[in-house]
Design a binder for these strands. Structure first.
Lengths: 217, 217
DNA sequence: ACATAAAAATGCTACGGATGTAAGATTGCC
DNA sequence: GGCAATCTTACATCCGTAGCATTTTTATGT
């Protein structure tokens, strides 16, 4: 995510500083345009013009247009695997992921899907963004599969951790979509939290008989 | 999928006949080019030139390029829901879908993922096609969710059938990807069938404690 | 059988995203 | 201060997608 220059003990440096500045500028201008006039309706030329930079500079920082809208991708992808790795002793994978989701839902955490009506709408009526979001869910599941394989001492790629990751990822994805739906329906976060917490109980509960004893810490 | 003209008792008709003829011609030429030189490397202009038609005619029959490569989309989308609806009395949703997959795996059915090395390779190194395939998996899961809601007398969109569909779809998708992997690895269909049948046992077996009694017929 | 309407194929134009290249400007380092 | 690296910029091209006017083919009605 962050640049390597930061880790090598050097002070930010003017060049690196300016880079991140223009990167931030482009990203901010882009999200502003996206939210105000929609993702598909906004061209890269629009963004470049509004940010007073060349088109190539935009596509240089953000190779794909979707990257301009969906930020914190790495955090999202790593979230499930991170929850698993950081789970407290005595908790199974299911319990850890279940607890983390409920916690995120009660806090209306954006990573769980609480992105606000404008953002949810932007994604909803853009096939490109929806597809990219599916990609992220898949990558997140793959990362979880590897983490589960490591945690259970199973070779990566084995069918059992992969299936378990697919099941756990499926529940998370379903609940994520529910939050998006409710957001688009105009519900406020408090109500969404209440509804989704109850639904999470049903969804994770359904998986409990199968995975209660899987990947214990 | 098919045209209405066919259902209104009229003989095929020269116009309809020629339409399907050119459609078939374009599709065949396209898949030939895709398999020989890759999906991304083949342009619509190439296809039009090889089929001796105008570019616009190609995009007229197939609005998106992916549609030229992935055929039988509707059959794929409807397969899980169809299996559920057509299940024999006394079988649960899980048992029906499990049985159908094993059957398809033993028969090396393309719908289960047995598409041959060339086709699998074409999909593997084309982000566009991979994305579209994920779409199809999602649509298939959505269709299954509706079918499960109907079968259990639950309102469509309810969390329980949606979650169940997500779980069952996840297993199917995981096994589908396994078949693709093994195909790309150069294994022959007989060996893939054997491996995947065993893995299906583990994967569906993992889900058994949760869904054994769900949606009985 | 001929004329007319409907429909399909064609050729053209245009736009947007993605990629490549070469020139100019800025920064970092010696 | 000057050199090397890198970023920005301004083209330029390619491809997929879409709209539109024109021509050719098919179907229908007189």
């Amino acid at each position: 995510m962050t640049t390597d220059a930061n880790s090598s003990a050097s002070p930010p440096g003017l060049r690196e500083s300016k880079k991140q500045q223009t990167r931030r500028l482009i990203s901010d201008v882009a999200t502003g345009l996206f939210l105000s006039q929609g993702f598909e309706q906004t061209t890269i030329a629009d963004i470049a013009a509004a940010a007073r930079v060349a088109k190539k500079t935009v596509t240089n920082y953000f190779p794909r247009k979707e990257d301009l809208a969906l930020d914190h991708q790495d955090a999202f992808i790593a979230s499930l695997a991170g929850t698993l790795v950081g789970r407290r002793p005595g908790t199974s994978a299911l319990a850890a992921l279940r607890g983390a989701f409920v916690e995120a839902a009660e806090a209306a955490n954006p990573v769980a899907g609480f992105s606000g009506p404008a953002f949810a709408g932007m994604i909803a009526d853009s096939p490109t963004l929806s597809a990219r979001l599916r990609d992220l869910h898949d990558l997140r599941e793959a990362a979880l599969a590897d983490a589960l394989a490591d945690a259970t001492g199973t070779p990566r790629g084995d069918i059992t951790p992969r299936t378990a990751a697919a099941l756990l990822g499926a529940v998370h994805r379903t609940l994520f979509q529910r939050i998006q739906e409710l957001t688009l329906a105009g519900e406020d976060n408090a109500r969404i939290s209440a509804v989704v917490t109850a639904e999470a109980d049903a969804a994770f509960g359904l998986l409990e008989p199968s995975l209660a004893d899987y990947a214990p810490a």
